[in-house]
Design a protein around this nucleic acid. Structure first.
Lengths: 141, 141
DNA sequence: TATTGTTATACTCTATAACTATA
DNA sequence: TATAGTTATAGAGTATAACAATA
């Protein structure tokens, strides 16, 4: 263990990388990437949400949201329909709703396994600590 | 707040992104990227460490370590010297030692500010939680 | 004027495969 | 046969700038 292991920023990167590797491996068979899952879950939560709104929620820029949403639409998981002349509301298709269920199962199992791997005395602190770091770092920017 | 905000994996990504943005902004004037800092700190901790050893410690592949180390050498911050016919040990130059001091100051201030932004009741849990998530995810892989 | 979506583009980070030189 | 370093390359992920259409 190097002295880097005392630095929250470094630990955050390593923890993120380790968890993402596991999640991506578990998602591999679904044809979804983790970013696809987050967008599909958001659309499921907020049917009709526009690309720009989704981008602001997920911290994805408009320019990068376009190919992402286009890919989900091409795969038949979402439809984009104009809500006014310039905004596109996104909704799940029936196939997309099935895909979300499938993804939700994997995510739920993954989060459960991850939490189970954390010592009981730290488990209740996982969510509060991560939220605090997120909000805290954002407040420093 | 979407339902994603209850998922450790998602929170980890957002927290990592937010902290990295702040850190990179603070490092901008030094000519260092965060990955440069982690390698320089490791070399400072372990003078003579080889590229492969450093790669295993930092989870950076040999193929990606080469241009990284070459850049630090070109900048005059490290020297690479053969330890046997195939391994290169890395050591800081005097200029590199100065650079590490500069970086360490920024890192220390950054980690302090980040910790200060976390509510006191969560603060002591930051390091244990991040270590637990890292090790836990690695054990799932 | 500001916003939405799009296109083009570039930069970083990460991953694999193939090669050489050496242990 | 395994390891160290290198090179080339490809794929994500993320960033900016410019544009047309619309509010």
């Amino acid at each position: 263990m190097s002295s880097l292991d005392a630095l929250p920023g470094y630990l955050l990167s390593r923890a993120r990388s380790a968890t993402l590797n596991v999640l991506n491996a578990r998602l591999a068979d679904t044809g979804l990437r983790h970013v696809d899952v987050s967008l599909l879950l958001l659309i499921d939560d907020t049917p009709g949400i526009t690309q720009s709104e989704a981008g602001r929620t997920l911290d994805i820029r408009r320019a990068n949201m376009t190919p992402l949403a286009a890919r989900l639409e091409r795969s038949g998981w979402i439809r984009r329909q104009p809500v006014d002349g310039r905004s596109h509301g996104m909704v799940l298709t029936p196939a997309g709703a099935d895909k979300v269920s499938e993804a939700r199962g994997i995510i739920t199992r993954f989060e459960h396994d991850l939490m189970a791997s954390v010592a009981p005395e730290q488990r209740d602190h996982v969510i509060p600590v991560l939220r605090a770091l997120w909000r805290g770092a954002a407040s420093l920017g």
